Simulated scan of single mutants.
Amino acid sequence: MSEDAKLDLLVFAAHPDDAEIGMGGTIAKAVREGQAVGLYDLTYAEMSSNGDPDTRQREAAEATALLGLAVRGNLELPDRGLRPGTAQSDKLVEAIRRHRPRAVFAPYFIDRHPDHIACSRLTEEAVFNAKLRRHMPELAAWTVDVLYFYFINDVHTPQLVVDITEVQPVKMAALSAYRSQFEPMGEGEDWVPTPLTAGYLDNVAARDRLFGAPHRLAYAEGFIPKGPVKMERL
């Protein structure tokens, strides 16, 4: 698919693996339903304690194939250098205008990682600026129907959930592609223990079960929309 291809859903993430953690099942489900889904990582995660940018890109490519993403790109912003309120958001504006998505997704703005918070704010700014016809007039303005926030590290009360029971194995396979982040290495390997290497994937699955339980679903992912969401019927 070309870099200007129309997308149904467009996801932004600070680092490769963030979107897979928070909404990998929703991505896989949307793709199975015939929707075109794109994902842009803002950084190469060059400050990660484990792995390196080349490794992370190979892992992201594997996850991309498993999820069936139509587009995946990297905006090449600095890891631990994301700055809301700056021209950095214009890179996100460009992606929104080129792909003209119905919905945009970003990390929830309460999270233990500062980059996740910054990505959330940059996306919110970009969604707003993308509809302003005098901002970056070389690209036609585009108004997104809805902005959704997904959760990465923490558990918050969702305002809506998506049943991902049938695609949970796909989500976990995509996450397992990031071996440098989630698998403890042996002695002599260049790695250090982090919260991600201490059963983090089990915690992700447990959260998906937690979100699903009140609705008698085996697994679900939770979201918070910015503003009301239009529904055709209840």
Rank of each mutant, 00 (worst) to 15 (best):
L82R: 10
A213M: 14
L42K: 00
A206H: 10
D54V: 01
D54E: 14
K6Y: 13
L147Y: 12
E166I: 11
V11T: 06
I117D: 02
I21T: 01
T194W: 09
R179T: 05
L7A: 10
T86I: 03
K6A: 15
L132C: 04
M23L: 15
Y40F: 15
M23V: 06
P137S: 08
N74S: 06
A198I: 07
L10T: 05
E3A: 11
R58F: 04
P195E: 08
D4G: 02
I224F: 08
V104L: 01
S2Y: 09
A60P: 10
A140R: 07
S180T: 12
T55W: 07
F128P: 00
S120T: 14
R112H: 09
L217W: 00
C119D: 02
V104Y: 02
T194E: 08
E221S: 07
A13L: 03
P184E: 04
A140V: 12
A141N: 03
L69S: 08
E3G: 04
R102C: 05
V162Y: 05
L7R: 09
H15P: 13
M136P: 03
R134K: 15
I110R: 14
G25L: 11
S176G: 11
A177H: 13
V144T: 07
A174Y: 05
D79S: 14
F151Q: 14
Y148R: 02
E76I: 01
